[in-house]
Design a protein around this nucleic acid. Structure first.
Lengths: 186, 186
DNA sequence: TATTGTTATACTCTATAACTATA
DNA sequence: TATAGTTATAGAGTATAACAATA
């Protein structure tokens, strides 16, 4: 049995005449130990039975899967999950500095520069000089930023529905309740 | 107010006489918009109110937190989360090739070489030439590998308890049940 | 011609270092 | 002396390229 494998491909220079990039690659897999015969390499859902009970592994894998789904859905807007986070905070109306935004998101100031550069280039965010302290640049959503945030919010919600489709209603509610609890110090 | 920030530090060459590495760094934070005054940069639990309802963000953050906790706990054994995954699969008794292991874990063959090199250097895993196909190297847990796996399993379980301490008994059960469900195609 | 495992290398991500301008 | 923001760069992680041995 065979199955199609879609790689996250980037362009590479090659010394040979062969094509440098394979968008799709067929992977054939032998049947062993009762495992499914069709295997997609780097499959986002495949989990070995021995790892099903390893909560850390499943958490990482499912979080990565969700992140990939959101990133793919945001691709047409040239945005990623983390940009949505920044827009979410700014959409509340708070006018905060880059440093402060970094603290809220756990991102260092150098990385924050690049993220804001991107959002500014897309005309979603403005840097505004602080009148009191000229070192500080305050971040503000533009009108376009607000409307783009509304779109990303819709996209994010749709992805969530897809991601959670294996759960019933009460399981979804519990998950939404307890995941934030895992991020609280008590 | 001030608080201690412990960075994930790695050694760097520096051109100045100043110390290249700060294991601890004090970060002082101004009070704004009712947020807590003490802020640990790259805080593993701090979540902005606007992001509490953003499931994807909270999933990624909590998964990263758990991974960091496991990695730190495995540090004395010179192992990481992913090594525990490999040991878990081998501990079931299956004798599989490096390629196969990569497919199970979603890891490419070049990266797998490095992971197995490390486990072999620690004498936890052996590469055994396949009698039928001399290209293939089968992976097998050593006796030391088995005893180390038992230790890592204990460590991992302890970290899980710590990670889940904000949840009550039934919430823990539900989480353990539904996280693997998020990784199933239906 | 295809596959396993290897080494070499390129790309991304992210954190530190060093710097400028302000305070 | 310390901080906000910037640029440059180092390190880790990870994926592709190329290759040798084997099928």
């Amino acid at each position: 049995m065979q199955t199609i494998c879609r790689y996250n491909v980037y362009m590479r220079k090659t010394k040979t005449a062969k094509p440098a990039v394979n968008i799709e690659k067929v992977v054939s897999v032998t049947d062993e130990a009762g495992h499914p015969q069709a295997v997609r390499f780097n499959d986002s859902t495949r989990v070995h039975p021995a790892l099903k009970e390893y909560l850390c592994y499943c958490m990482i894998k499912s979080a990565n899967r969700m992140k990939t789904m959101v990133d793919e859905a945001l691709l047409p807007l040239q945005l990623q999950t983390i940009h949505f986070g920044i827009l979410s905070i700014l959409n509340r109306g708070d006018i905060i500095s880059q440093i402060r935004m970094g603290q809220e998101l756990g991102i260092d100031k150098a990385s924050m520069v690049k993220l804001i550069n991107k959002l500014e280039a897309l005309k979603l965010v403005e840097r505004i000089a602080d009148a009191k302290d000229r070192r500080i640049k305050l971040l503000k959503l533009t009108a376009q930023g607000k409307s783009t945030f509304a779109k990303t919010k819709k996209i994010s919600a749709d992805v969530e529905v897809e991601f959670l489709k294996n759960l019933n209603c009460s399981e979804r509610e519990v998950l939404r309740k307890i995941i934030p609890l895992l991020l609280e110090k008590k």
